[in-house]
Simulated scan of single mutants.
Amino acid sequence: MAETIAHARGEALELVGTRQEEGVLTLILQNPPANALSIAMMDALKDALDRARDDHAVRVIVIAHEGTVFSAGHDLKEMTAHRRDADGGRAFFARTMALCADLMQAIVHHPKPVIAAVDGVATAAGCQLVASCDLAVASGHARFATPGVNIGLFCSTPMVALSRNISRKHAMEMLLAGEMIDAETALVFGLVNRVVTREELNRTVVKMARVIASKSPLTIRTGKEAFYRQAEMRLADAYEYTQHVMVENMMARDAEEGIGAFIEKREPEWRGE
């Protein structure tokens, strides 16, 4: 039994490749053609994110992909196979959705910024994955959709990430129509930060990641957590919360060092303290 579990874990880890350089960890979805978010794929991705949390060599995480599809969302064949279960698949469906929710929240609550690099199609939970990342860069070949409505399954969980990234009208258009939008439309909607050529995609993402990686890791961690927490608060509560965050941030060694370096016109030396 232990060997079987170890083998399954090894297979799952192969679904997500890794590359690390100059503080940037790239996680590569490598189960084309669909790069579907199966149980194994989500386990592997979450495991890689969890391991990066306490790795001080990692400052920024990039989620990229092999093939022409970033991710087509949940593995519908895997889910359909479980309709033969005694409960009609209910327990497996619940497990799938719970794991997906955990994965998306792991990205949002991760202390390191996460950037999606999209050079293909991202649909349903794949689109949700892009929306859950802190930043996203797309090539002109990227396409996005929440097409569940077309197969009788409204994209309710992708809706959570989508509606927190783009306007309600744009989110509802994608959710109700289920149609594919191109990269330029995704840029207008606010789903991605930039659209570049396929040839420029990796260079743009690496440059963006390295700029962020050059900052104080303490400051980035503090700011990312505060951003998502205050976004859910009333205006007065958000100001009350963030003023305390700024006071604590000012007391940090990196803030003292950064301000001193600015005044003295020199490069700061970050310690993450």
Rank of each mutant, 00 (worst) to 15 (best):
I181G: 04
S167T: 11
D87E: 05
G88I: 03
M79I: 15
D75E: 08
L76V: 14
L103H: 09
H141D: 14
E179A: 12
T146R: 10
Q128P: 00
M172K: 00
P158H: 09
L175S: 11
G73R: 07
S132V: 02
V160S: 05
L175I: 13
L129M: 04
T96Y: 10
F93E: 06
L76M: 13
P147V: 05
A98M: 06
Q105E: 09
P113C: 05
A116D: 01
L129P: 01
E78H: 11
H141T: 07
G88Y: 04
T96S: 13
L129T: 01
A183Y: 07
G178L: 03
L129I: 01
A131C: 01
S167Y: 14
K169F: 12
M174V: 01
A122M: 02
N165F: 11
H82A: 07
G89M: 01
G178I: 04
D75T: 13
A106C: 01
F93Y: 11
A125M: 15
M159W: 08
R164I: 08
S167H: 06
D119M: 00
V149M: 11
A86C: 12
C133W: 02
A98D: 13
H82T: 09
H110L: 08
A98P: 02
N165S: 08
V118H: 03
H141L: 06
A136H: 05
L99C: 12
F93K: 04
G88P: 09
L99A: 14
R143T: 13
L76N: 10
H109D: 12
F93M: 09
H109V: 10
S156G: 15
D102A: 15
M97S: 13
M174A: 03
P147C: 05
I115R: 02
S139D: 01
E184F: 00
R143L: 13
I181S: 05
M159V: 03
L99H: 12
T146V: 08
H110Q: 10
H170W: 03
A183Q: 06
V137T: 13
M104D: 15
T96P: 02
K169I: 13
A81K: 15
F92K: 06
A177V: 12
L99Y: 08
D119Q: 03
G89Y: 04
A72C: 13
L162G: 00
N150P: 00
E173R: 09
R143Q: 15
H110I: 02
R90H: 14
G73N: 03
R168N: 12
A171Y: 01
